[in-house]
């Protein structure tokens, strides 16, 4: 019995502190987690989506489709979006949104015979330069939105389309 230099009272004290500590931690942890949750949350920015291989992009704007997840109330669905992508003179990749800034029709590249090499909106004849700038005298009042873009491992990733200031 000489080895036991711990009394019954001490033993109970230790166990109770231990168990109590766990219980307190069990209660506090979720509370702390809730309190700091907004900090841990990922940025609201939409995830980037792989669209195409960079090698497929040329100087002429080309239309690429890609899918994003869209939440509509409780219902999550995949929505197809498209982008007009090309390389500009400096070799940068430009990805333009195909949605006309006038009333939201879908624009097309080089389809108006009278005005070649422009984006053309079939609804009200809105036109944009290759870089997306709206042409004065046509209905749109702002340049086309530009997608956030990123190149990784030879692939082009696109994020959200962001508006630019009017010309």
């Amino acid at each position: 019995m000489s080895k036991e230099d711990i009394s019954r009272r001490q033993f109970l004290n230790y166990t109770l502190t231990g168990v109590g500590g766990f219980m307190a931690a069990g209660m506090l942890m979720p509370m702390v987690r809730f309190a700091i949750d907004p900090i841990l949350e990922k940025g609201a920015s939409q995830d980037m989506v792989a669209v195409t291989e960079v090698s497929k992009i040329g100087k002429e704007p080309k239309r690429f489709n890609f899918k994003i997840k869209q939440k509509d109330g409780w219902y999550e669905s995949e929505v197809t979006q498209s982008a007009w992508v090309y390389k500009n003179g400096k070799g940068e990749l430009i990805a333009l949104s195909p949605v006309c800034k006038h009333l939201g029709c879908t624009i097309d590249w080089n389809t108006d015979p009278a005005h070649p090499n422009q984006f053309y909106c079939p609804c009200h004849g809105g036109r944009y330069e290759k870089d997306g700038t709206n042409i004065k005298g046509t209905p749109p009042l702002a340049p086309l939105d530009v997608y956030d873009s990123q190149v990784k491992d030879g692939k082009l990733y696109l994020g959200k389309a962001k508006p630019r200031k009017g010309a």
Binding site: L103, C105, P122, C123
Partner: peptide
């Protein structure tokens, strides 16, 4: 409708 949203 998606394509011609603004006029249709």
């Amino acid at each position: 409708e998606r394509q011609l949203h603004g006029r249709l």
